[in-house]
């Protein structure tokens, strides 16, 4: 094997191994500090009781804090995770369904919701509420 060829092998092998190694050490450093349970499992836990109350199929609405921008990534993620938690129920990001899940981060009052046409059916804690849209009955 000529020095030129040996150099080529060492170059390719070293670049590859160091690239794998860099990710390995980054992840090894982060892993012990990773939250347990993970964020998705924790988020899902908030919907455990609600999921048990829902029928095996159907459509339910979803709403969050009223002033949340439509492009808010966290809000979008929470909506997607709500669908993930409640499948096979279809969760549509609209309050125009008869039953609506509220996922609020700021305090909302039953009176405030009633003024907007929603009757609170049950509160599950952590800002999760099952609402009935009285206009969509």
């Amino acid at each position: 094997m000529t020095p030129r060829v040996l150099g080529a092998i060492l170059f390719v092998a070293a670049v590859s191994l160091l690239s794998v190694g860099r990710l390995f050490f980054q992840v090894a450093d982060f892993y012990p500090k990773a939250p347990s349970p993970d964020g998705v499992t924790e988020f899902e836990g908030r919907f455990a009781v609600l999921r048990g109350m829902l029928p095996p199929k159907g459509i339910i609405g979803y709403m969050t804090d009223p002033d949340t921008p439509a492009a808010d990534t966290n809000a979008q993620a929470e909506y997607h995770l709500t669908q993930y938690a409640l499948a096979p129920i279809l969760v549509v990001n609209s309050s125009q369904q008869r039953f609506v899940i509220g996922n609020f981060h700021r305090a909302v009052t039953t009176g405030g919701l009633r003024d907007r046409g929603f009757k609170t059916l049950r509160e599950f804690g952590n800002g999760i509420v099952l609402l009935e849209n009285e206009k969509a009955r």
């Binding site: 090894a28 998705v40 499992t41 199929k57 993620a77 997607h80």
Partner: peptide
Amino acid sequence: MLHGAAPHGEWDAWSIWNLRARFLFRAQ
């Protein structure tokens, strides 16, 4: 380690692929 830290996967996993698996598993 990555799977241990995020067992449900990342965004597309729980908003598309594993979500669809749940639909197929749970749906009647």
